[in-house]
């Protein structure tokens, strides 16, 4: 083997390794599912408040939707995992990030409010802050700068909602859920589809 052949061989290895690390690990299905579910819940919550429907009903609404959401999410995840043809380390980290963020949001949204640890008016900016952190980390893990940059949108929205609190925050948060979660989920899904239909070939 001469140095030219060795260089070619190394170049092929490098391409395969780089491409394998960019595997479309995130299908975006969970982003779309949670984006739609939470947006719907936020709008219903806003309508309840406008109609003067009291706190316990709102609490029940969120409790039912969130428990249902976790169950459906777990079923989708299990199905995806079973059918997955390739598992990556990045995929594992990504799952850990989102499960961790999900538990944190549930703690803030339920335990924090039930225990009166803080004024419920700040639940939306607090959750937006957690989402910002989760998007920042998952964008870096996926090497997708645009996903990482969504975190700045979440954090900017959180600052706005902290500065101008009120139940209009629900609508602001619903808008953010569509723009910064559902739409990116659709983009990720399209990317994944494209990747699945045209995998790279090396040999």
């Amino acid at each position: 083997m001469d140095s030219r052949q060795a260089e070619q061989e190394l170049a092929v290895i490098k391409t395969i390794m780089e491409d394998s690390r960019k595997i479309g690990i995130d299908k975006g299905v969970h982003y779309i599912f949670w984006g739609v579910l939470v947006t719907a819940a936020l709008i219903v919550n806003y309508i309840f408040l406008v109609m003067g429907i009291s706190g316990p009903y709102i609490g029940m609404l969120w409790l039912v939707l969130m428990i249902g959401g976790w169950v459906v999410s777990a079923i989708i995840g299990r199905k995806e995992n079973k059918a997955r043809k390739v598992k990556t380390f990045a995929g594992k980290i990504l799952s850990a990030i989102w499960i961790g963020a999900g538990v944190s949001m549930m703690m803030l949204g339920f335990i924090g409010i039930v225990t009166h640890a803080y004024n419920p008016i700040f639940v939306c900016p607090l959750i937006a802050t957690v989402l910002g952190a989760a998007y920042f980390a998952s964008g870096i893990v996926q090497s997708q700068n645009w996903v990482r940059n969504l975190s700045f949108g979440w954090w900017a929205g959180a600052i706005l909602m902290f500065i101008f609190p009120g139940f209009h925050s629900l609508l602001v948060f619903a808008f953010m859920m569509v723009a910064l979660q559902t739409v990116p989920g659709i983009i990720l899904y399209r990317q994944w589809k494209r990747y699945e239909s045209a995998p790279a070939q090396y040999v």
């Binding site: 395969i16 690390r21 043809k85 390739v86 990556t88 995929g91 090396y202 040999v203």
Partner: peptide, 23 residues
């Protein structure tokens, strides 16, 4: 070499995935 480069970068891969990747 291609199989090894592929497997070193992922946790695990299914037969058809490797086949399609390395043609």
């Amino acid at each position: 070499t291609a199989i090894m480069a592929l497997l070193v970068s992922v946790e695990e891969a299914e037969f058809t995935y490797i086949r399609d990747k390395i043609n």
